[in-house]
Design a protein around this nucleic acid. Sequence first.
DNA 1: CCGCTTTACTAAAGCGGTTTTTGGGGCCTC
DNA 2: GAGGCCCCAAAAACCGCTTTAGTAAAGCGG
Lengths: 346, 346
Amino acid sequence: MSRVTIADVASAAGVSKTAVSFAFNNPERLGQATLERVLGVAHDLGYTPHPAARALSMRRSGTIGLLIPQSLSMVFANPFLGELIQGLGELCEEHDLTLLLVPPLDGSLEGAIRQAAVDGFISLGLVPDDRAIEVLDGLGVPTVLIDSDESPAHPVVNVDDRSGAQAAATHLLELGHRQLAIVVLPPARAEMSYTPTATRRLAGYNVAIEAAGAPTPHLVSAGISVAAGTRAFESLPSGKRRPTGVLVMSDMAAIGVINAANAAGIRVPEDLSVVGFDDLPVAPWTNPPLTTVRQPIVEKGRLAASMLIERMKGKSVASPAPLSTTLVVRASTAEVAATDLPIKRR
Amino acid sequence: MSRVTIADVASAAGVSKTAVSFAFNNPERLGQATLERVLGVAHDLGYTPHPAARALSMRRSGTIGLLIPQSLSMVFANPFLGELIQGLGELCEEHDLTLLLVPPLDGSLEGAIRQAAVDGFISLGLVPDDRAIEVLDGLGVPTVLIDSDESPAHPVVNVDDRSGAQAAATHLLELGHRQLAIVVLPPARAEMSYTPTATRRLAGYNVAIEAAGAPTPHLVSAGISVAAGTRAFESLPSGKRRPTGVLVMSDMAAIGVINAANAAGIRVPEDLSVVGFDDLPVAPWTNPPLTTVRQPIVEKGRLAASMLIERMKGKSVASPAPLSTTLVVRASTAEVAATDLPIKRR
DNA sequence: CCGCTTTACTAAAGCGGTTTTTGGGGCCTC
DNA sequence: GAGGCCCCAAAAACCGCTTTAGTAAAGCGG
C-alpha cells in the first residue's frame, strides 16, 4: 500500500513521466486528449506529487520558517506570538505559503534550522551575529529579522521601542512618581545579554528618568508570562523603598504584577501604578484596564512577511523605519498618593 | 555562491559521498582518521545536508502538520490555538519535530495538504469524512483528529463538550433563568453544517433546557472573535423577549457579548448572565470575570501529539475517552432579576 | 513532393542526499 | 603460501519529481 508515484500514473495512462508532470505544471504542452486522460488517471489513482521530491527538484518548498528562540510552550503563553502570526499568516496565504514553526530542538536552534526545509526565515528577537543567524547566512537562505539590531546584511523590522518606553516613563513621572521599578525582558537564550528590544526599551525609560532627575530605578528581570510578573512583583523592595510605579516590558508580566499586588493588598493604581508594553488585546480587559505602550504587532508580521517574500523573489529590500509606538493610558496608572510624595519625605 | 553539497565535501576531503554521509549518520562505519577529517572539512565548508533531499531519501521530514480549517489571521485571533500549540509544542520538541501550520491555500485545504511535506497530520475541527481528510488517507499519512466525530479510521481527541454545555445551561436554569439564547460556533468551512463540537455543545445545552421545561432558546451563530460576539449580541431579540441568560460557545465571543451589553446599558450579570466556553487565560480578567466551561486545551494538544507520534512509529492507538470539562463559576452570571421572573408575567 | 516549422510527446539528466552492495587490502590461520 | 575474515571505503542504485534536449509525425507553403 505504498504511495502512488508519478511513474504509476504514467504507466497506467500509457504515457511518460514527463507527460504526467506536464499535465500538472505545464498543461499547454500537452494535447487536449492526453491531458484529460492523464488528469483522469491521476485523479482515479489519488496521485499527489511527493512534496519533498518536488521541493528538491524545484528548489522551492512553499514554506517559510519562523525562528523562535525559546520553547513553543513558553513563547505561546504570550499572545504576542499569536498576533504576529496573524500578520505573517495573511501574507503567507496570499502567496500560497505555509508557515513552519522552528523552535530550538534539543536545545539547539542551529540544529533545528538545518532540519527545516524552507524558502526563507523570519527570525524573532535574535541579534544579527547570533550563531543561528550565521548558519542561515552560510546556507544562503533569505532572512528577515524582527526585533533585532540594525544589520547591514539583513532587512530588519522594528518598532520604536525607545520612544514608547520613554513615553511610558514620562507618563509616570508626570503623575509625580519618583521611585520606579523596571521589569526587564529576559535574554532570549540563557548565555546572552538583554535582547535588542529590552536594551532599547531600557534606554528609553532611562532617558526620561534621568531627564526628570528621578532616582535610579530598581531593575528586575522577568519572563513574559503572568507567573513571571508575579514573581517579579515579589522581588521588589518593600517598605519605604517600595516603588510607586512599575514599568513592565510586557503586558503579560504587567498583569502578573497587578495580580500579585492585589493579592498583597496593594491597590492598583492607588498604591501602585503599572505600565505595560505591547497593548495586547487583553490589555483593556484587565482589572484595572492596563495603561500600556501600543506596538502594531500584526502589522509587524505583515511587513516582515512581505519583505521576506520580496527577498525570496531575489529582490533586495531595505529595512523600513521603525514602526511607531504610542502610549495608551487606561486605569492602571494614577497620580502618586500623597503619602508617597517626595515632598512628604523632607 | 550556491549551496555546499555532499559532493563538495567529499571531493574536498578526498573521499566518496558515501563516506561523508556515513560520517554524519553512521560514524562507526568509518575509520577514526577519516571520520575526523570528513567532519572537519564539512564544518569548514559550512556544510548542511539539504533537508528536502534528506526527506526524500529517508522518507521522513521531521515535521508534523497542523491542519487549520480557516485562515491563520482568523484563527489566531482566538487564544485557543495558542494554547493548543503549547501542548503540541511540548511533545514536538521532546521528539525533535517541527510544527507546520497548514491553513487553506487559495481556499483549498486539500491543495495545502499536498504541498506539505510532513510525517503526520493533526486535524482541528474537521469531520472524518471531510474531503481533506480523505486526501490524507489516500496519502497514507498518519493522522489524529482533534474536536471531531468518533471515527473508526482515526484516533480522535475530544473533550466532553456535552456535559460541559449541560452544566453551563443547568447553572443558568438554577439561577432562575428561563429565557435563554445560545451563541453557536460557525461551521468550519462555508459549505458545511455545524462543527462536531458545536453539535455536541448544542445537544448538552438542550438536554438541560428541555429537562427544566424552559422555552426553546434563541439561536445565533457567531465566529470566535470578540467582534463576532458583539454582533451576536446585537442580533438578540430585545424588549420583553430579551433573553436573561446567554450561553456562548467560545470565551472570546462571550467577551464580545459582555462588551456589547455594557455598551447598550445592559449590566452583566444584573440584567444579563453570560456563560462562555473554553476558560481561556483571559476569562478571569474580563469585566466581570467570566463564568465559563473549562476544557483542558494544552492537555488536548499534548495528548494528540503523543498519539500522533505513536502512530508515526507504526503503532496503532485507540481514541481516549473524552477529556473532562468543568464549569467555572465567576461573576458574569447571577440570579435572574426579579422583574424578569416568569412569575411576574402572569 | 521537398524542406521547414510546429506540435506532441519522450528519454535522460539532474536535484542532493541515503543505503545496499561490492571490492580492495591487511592480517591470521593452517 | 593459499584461503578466509575483517575492516574500510567506494560504486551504484534509489528516493520521486522537474526540465532540458531531442525525436517522430504532422502541417504547410511553394
